[in-house]
Design a protein around this nucleic acid. Sequence first.
DNA 1: CTGAAAGCGCTTACAG
DNA 2: CTGAAAGCGCTTACAG
Lengths: 350, 350
Amino acid sequence: MDNEDQIIGIKDVAKAANVALATVDRVIHNRAGVSIKTKEKVLKVIEKMGYKPNIMASNLSKSKKTIIGVLIPDISESSGYWEFPLQGIIKAQKELAQYRIKIKTFTFKQDNSKEVRKKILELINSDIQGLILTSKFADEIQILLQDCKEKERPCVFIDSNIRKMDALCSIQQPLYESGELAAQLFNYCFDEGEILILHLKDTMDTEDIIGLKENGINGYLQEKKSLITTRTLVITDFNEDTIDTVLTQTLKENPKIKGVFIPNSKVAHIANYLEKRAGEKIYLIGYDFFKEDIEYLEKEIIDFLICQRPEEQGYQAVYKLFENLILKKAVENEIIMPLDILTKKNYKYY
Amino acid sequence: MDNEDQIIGIKDVAKAANVALATVDRVIHNRAGVSIKTKEKVLKVIEKMGYKPNIMASNLSKSKKTIIGVLIPDISESSGYWEFPLQGIIKAQKELAQYRIKIKTFTFKQDNSKEVRKKILELINSDIQGLILTSKFADEIQILLQDCKEKERPCVFIDSNIRKMDALCSIQQPLYESGELAAQLFNYCFDEGEILILHLKDTMDTEDIIGLKENGINGYLQEKKSLITTRTLVITDFNEDTIDTVLTQTLKENPKIKGVFIPNSKVAHIANYLEKRAGEKIYLIGYDFFKEDIEYLEKEIIDFLICQRPEEQGYQAVYKLFENLILKKAVENEIIMPLDILTKKNYKYY
DNA sequence: CTGAAAGCGCTTACAG
DNA sequence: CTGAAAGCGCTTACAG
């Protein structure tokens, strides 16, 4: 099957089909200006000879570079979460520099929807060939998606929670399942008692995300017929004082609480509180891995972190666009990220 | 700093240094036949102009392919473990087919050291430019390493437990730390009792590997001043009957046993036993992820699996050789694999 | 020790 | 609609 050394090129195809190189090139790239007859003839020869284009030669001779747009929140926001996908994007870009891939980043403040719209307009009018973005602004982003569709600019979603039909690829996080996982881990730590699902509001979190995780927790507990119950608490204004007051009260009124679940990356705030608090051990599970969490992992105040390889999401996104735009490969429509579990004893290797 | 569009090539360097293209090429590749004076002049220009070779052009014009040798056990052995690194190797090879990378696989039966030596000889006399191997046959492999050193064939170790000085790169698994991690997980499941460290002997496991994991467990328990103790049991001939007899007796004599730790990938054998056994829940932690484990993860008979991304190890190994041999990049001397934790609730996304 | 020229497998104007 | 030719940035004989 693998015809070994005999690498056959466009020249061989041209000779066999009795046409010029340029014609074969036109057929390969589906460019206009070839008669149906010729096209079919060439395609048949390509098929028969098993011709595979040589990307290196292709890229070497092609003049223009490929520009990928990136639309994400400022890295200074959301505890700096977006720094990681961006790092992954940059890493991939460096690896692919040979292929003349450029990244154009468009960032915005999350609570500033005027700015979001401005950046979207900039993107529409820019010379990008592909786009990486996050799925969290359902409304504003429709125009952009529509525009990309018309211009045939492939889009890749990262940090996505639903499968986008028009996207080239959605890099997804299984939210419900991450809730199940958290519940399973709590269930290893205690047999009965209560899990406090504590929502420290961040502009980026939609109710969807929290809700799915919460459902996952309850789903697991039901499935296991566990004696553990859950209770949800939302804190909007989460400075240290508020947390102190609200949590002290909640824990006092509900002595059955043995675990706290933070469905976003704000877990360090709560760890800070729990550390100072006297009393029985309370198990703590959160999301995402930040420097400020290390101290609490070490002390086992944070017991588990559930992570979704944010860096790899950015990295993969660039590669998927690269495969589509440059290698002209088929790309899977959705990539589901693993649910990584981090503890004191394995975070160092993450 | 990034001189943008102005990509400067060998031609620009040649012109600036007032020499021919071929001379610049000779300098770049450190080939013989250039006077020191010319060489220095060219190097200076390269430095000043910030010349970066274009790998695509380089590869396109170079005629020969790069052959990478792989020395690993038969994939039919060790519960099929080696299938995974091999898959990773093949995946990388396919991705890099454009760079004319070929893989030559040399496999052997693990208990057949005559065959190992034969394959080593074959490797030495082969036309490989680089080598991927595993570090588990310290003795036989010395000759091979020495030979590779002399011929300047870079070696990458996978599934490695020590850092090899002469290797291009060792892809390592933190063994001690994985033991610590297992202990931490057990400690979440129960506060006191005994962990049975059960060693089902496999030809590949050296005492080192098991010992380090065991030390990790004990290290964690001491550090935590835990009330949990450990007990070690070795079963050499592990057919179903032996396991049944030995384990039934051991568990009867040691009713404090609440957890079983399997330091290799044989955990399904024990899960099979524990499933049929009546009595209190016994927590079970093992290594590596195989199809036969799924059933037991689902039933939570196996509680946690510690995995080391075997596929990625093979994949990375090829990429490191690729970077070294073809891209002429510097390669990190050691890569430490993460300790992934798998449970019923996240294995599907692995 | 040094250089001129052909060629790697494509793409891209340009001419017909 | 089709083709001949130059060029992408290197490497590789070959000649001197």
